[in-house]
Design a protein around this nucleic acid. Sequence first.
DNA 1: CCGGTTGCTTGAATCGTTTCAAGTCAGACA
DNA 2: TGTCTGACTTGAAACGATTCAAGCAACCGG
Lengths: 361, 361
Amino acid sequence: MSGKVKMVTMRDVAQASGFSPATVSIVLNNAPLARYIAPATKKRIEDAAKKLGYRPNAMARFLRSRRSQTVGVMIFDITDPFCTPVLRGIENALYQSSYVPIFADAHNQRTRFERYLEMLLEHHVEALIVVANWLFVDIQLLADLSKRNITAATIGWEVPGDSVSSVMVDNEAGGRLALEHLHHLGHRKIAVIRGPKMLIDSGPRWKGIQKFANSVGLEMDPSLVVQLPDELEANSGFDGGYRFTEELLERKKKFTAVLAFDDLTAFGAIRALTKAGIKVPEQCSVVGFDDVPLSALSAPSLTTVRQPLEAMGNLAVNLVVEGIKAGLEKRDWSISRHKMTPELVIRDSTKAVEGGKDLTK
Amino acid sequence: MSGKVKMVTMRDVAQASGFSPATVSIVLNNAPLARYIAPATKKRIEDAAKKLGYRPNAMARFLRSRRSQTVGVMIFDITDPFCTPVLRGIENALYQSSYVPIFADAHNQRTRFERYLEMLLEHHVEALIVVANWLFVDIQLLADLSKRNITAATIGWEVPGDSVSSVMVDNEAGGRLALEHLHHLGHRKIAVIRGPKMLIDSGPRWKGIQKFANSVGLEMDPSLVVQLPDELEANSGFDGGYRFTEELLERKKKFTAVLAFDDLTAFGAIRALTKAGIKVPEQCSVVGFDDVPLSALSAPSLTTVRQPLEAMGNLAVNLVVEGIKAGLEKRDWSISRHKMTPELVIRDSTKAVEGGKDLTK
DNA sequence: CCGGTTGCTTGAATCGTTTCAAGTCAGACA
DNA sequence: TGTCTGACTTGAAACGATTCAAGCAACCGG
């Protein structure tokens, strides 16, 4: 019961099957040389391995072959609902490729990011995936990783230079989608809560909004446009949405819809509106961005611009796995930058403007 | 630029400092023997290591010392909002102890669980933490792990036998808390949505409810009590809450409050009530269980029984870390089972019953 | 009967660290 | 002068796999 189980090594399998460790290794890994091995031999070795319950020792293997079967997954803050589906996508794709994720959560802190990077390097991850926000513009990352030729990919952020692939959503198209929806519903007085300046997403989203506004001759009242501050707190989006909406209400400016930077901000806005006795969506529509998991469950459920988060996680994995392969085969390989197309998800938080006609029908 | 960076090994540090690899190892690890090493030597070695940017190779180290600095974290479904705070707690505590988490998400599938277990063993995790639900009663886990003396702890589930520690919430106290709150608010006709039979939490929560009801002479109308089916789907709680609430409404039974099995179920209930034109909390109170992150953000925010999820993650880590230490020092060590006390969080989804008086004041 | 092929298998080096038993050396003591 | 203490330091053997160059038969054609 308490007796320690001696580890079954390749040597044991060799002994049991009557072949040498070299042969066992070749067979069990289906190495190139395996095509010279007699089928009967293969069978005997495989049987022996199974019977003994042989499990390769990933560490020992790494030492010789330099393959750790491990990928670092660095997340800026798992507490942010944005991250969960992305993580799911990453995990799932890695699983398909038989890589194991080493999980690192930076808690939005640079020092923590750096320490984790160190740890990941010590563990010789074969690649790194970073789900990032503004914090992570890091020369270190570029220099250290590409020199050690560890392929890396970021999700939700781009690193300057040509050493890191990236996967993002097409923010401009998303911004456009959001405003287009509200416009079609007949909204003309629309409050916009822009994202923090330092976030890479904020600019393009706003640009998409403006472009659409121009294209249909819609005037965006500057006094209805506010911008979230550069904040790192977990729920700063929610708080910001709440505060700014309150503020707008106090200013007595009239608006029939709020276009929020992201879902959390939208929830904050809804909270503020509800508290002020304004019904969503009857008296004011609210649209978010991201489609985080809560958005479908909240009351009212949130109309939002969906980022294909899980697919983005998937894609990032495929990119780095390609990079690993290329490195192994000494092929050339260059990074790529991707923009996924967002999708409008219409739920219960938006409605045709009171008295206006729903132009979507 | 493209030149590969040769790894800096201990040998290099030895060379640079003029000592042998053995000495370097002793110094850099601050091994027991280090107390015999001259301070000047230590300094020279440490300087050399720093100058060369030496980073120990975790794999090579493991091979000799059997320490992988790695802990497996198996989660039943990261998509479940319950898991996020727990994961945060685990990650944070591991980070403090300089362990690196290997992340595994079973997607609620047994086969996936087993394959991941295999992978974790290949990577020689020093311990395993399982955030579990009903799926994971697994003899394998007990046998394989304790025999290979890998300490393990589960969160949210108990494994029979004496080989796995566990951390749970005191469900009975929680159930009591929830009903007590509604009762104090004057509610007497209370619908209860019980958890699935196969979930370990369901029984004790219901028991806590019944006990409190008895203690105050409250009669729980059996026709107002329903039970969620054994479902594995991600949002089955939400759907169940929605469906059962709809059903109760159709039956025209009167009730002024819903005590839901967990927060997701509560959200489902709120959705159904809202859809039927019943205002929460004005016409019907709803109380959940867990306090998942969304609960604070939803409109109305959810009154719920809080599980200290992050603390539970922390505790689980502390348990296994203790186990690892004990194993290293060949001390005896026995598993433990913990029940954390839940806490009532009063938010906006509950209110004194219409016409009744709020007894909490 | 020899040299060359083909088909299959393996010896031995290697990866980067840790771990002791065993070394060296200077000075103290007898 | 010889021996004995420390006080430091290190040689060399693991750990468990991978990887080639090299080995061994057996067979074939000439």
